[in-house]
Design a protein around this nucleic acid. Structure first.
Lengths: 203, 203
DNA sequence: GTCTATAGGAAGATAGAC
DNA sequence: GTCTATCTTCCTATAGAC
């Protein structure tokens, strides 16, 4: 076993935990399974983390951040809002289909947080964070294409977040890619219909 | 302890299990917690069910059926499609807000099924069932109002299912009722835009 | 049928040798 | 710092008295 700092070990344990969760689910990611995945012994765990729950919180943040990065990367800056929407949704969906396990882990962790006493606040913040990111993306898209949304952006963000989240979860259940993509197209057209050219005002 | 048949006991155990799950979550619904809730002893459990998993499957079906019934009851038969959509969505949402625990249990069970070896088939069937019900409702709504949908109904059903599912899950996280209802209104308007009067043809 | 008692195992966490 | 061995608790499931 190579020597490494507690910080490095923490990092490796988090990554190992994510691998186990993606492969087998959150409940199966016991401290034993995690240290085994990381090639460490059980004793190691508790001087890197005070408890399993601390690790879970860390993993939750990590998975959230990953999803946020993916959403940002999926977003296509385009002058043409129609192309921007289409490309962004398509890129987002590619990511989802390529990482089903990660999506599932996201849901599992969200629910865990909702149930665990004292973690509701974490759950609430994660949701708020997702919504904020959607708000930012929608506003950036509008800026890039010089349009404005005809619906308040926070509402639109919540709508978009809901469709994508619900569609992902539905697809995880039945893996019907073709129909899921049709829903995305429908959503894209809907979004397009909620834009108008920007008035030259506000200056 | 009153005498009752194994069948009655099964029934009571299922109901007790649902109460525990709604209150404390699926993982906390251990056989011990369930029999305690039902006012029985641990020994009773295993001559009513061969295993905890058998109970979980039963509960999953029960919760699904309940959600389906709620969806059906929420649906408002109206001659005016606009009123039909608005009323149905509002009724659906009232049910969601009145039963947050049950919604959460639904998600937990769905994920459990997705992870459990041998239960994927159950999961798949549950999702298919929800989609079928949405298809039926959309078609009934169209019939009642004498309109037709301009988008294939299976796609529309998947879309509707996704929005409602995602929105529910988002609301469970942040409990922002006002904004959720705005999303519902937006969705309703979108649906309304996907209708057209029925051509007198096809006869 | 109905219960108590217990088997048998896995979990999180820790004590203490090296 | 690192690991083994163990504590304690909780689980599902069953055996066997009544």
């Amino acid at each position: 076993m190579p020597r490494m700092s507690a910080k490095e070990r923490r990092e490796e344990l988090i990554e190992a935990a994510i691998r186990v969760m993606v492969r087998e689910g959150v409940t199966k990611a016991t401290t034993r399974a995690i240290v085994a995945e990381a090639g460490m012994t059980l004793g190691v765990f508790h001087y890197c983390f005070t408890s399993r729950e601390e690790l879970l919180q860390e993993v939750t943040r990590r998975i959230t951040d990953r999803a946020v990065v993916a959403a940002r990367e999926a977003f296509a800056h385009e002058r043409d809002i129609s192309a921007s929407i289409t490309k962004s949704l398509r890129a987002f969906w590619e990511y989802v289909e390529r990482n089903p396990g990660e999506q599932l882990v996201g849901y599992e962790l969200a629910q865990y947080a909702l149930r665990q006493e004292g973690l509701q606040e974490l759950a609430r913040r994660q949701y708020a964070h997702y919504l904020e990111v959607h708000v930012e993306i929608l506003e950036e898209a509008a800026d890039a294409a010089d349009i404005e949304w005809t619906v308040p952006v926070p509402v639109l963000a919540r709508y978009l977040n809901s469709v994508l989240d619900g569609l992902t979860s539905c697809w995880l259940g039945d893996r019907d890619s073709a129909r899921s993509q049709e829903v995305l197209r429908l959503t894209g057209e809907h979004l397009l219909g909620l834009t108008r050219e920007r008035k030259p005002s506000t200056d």
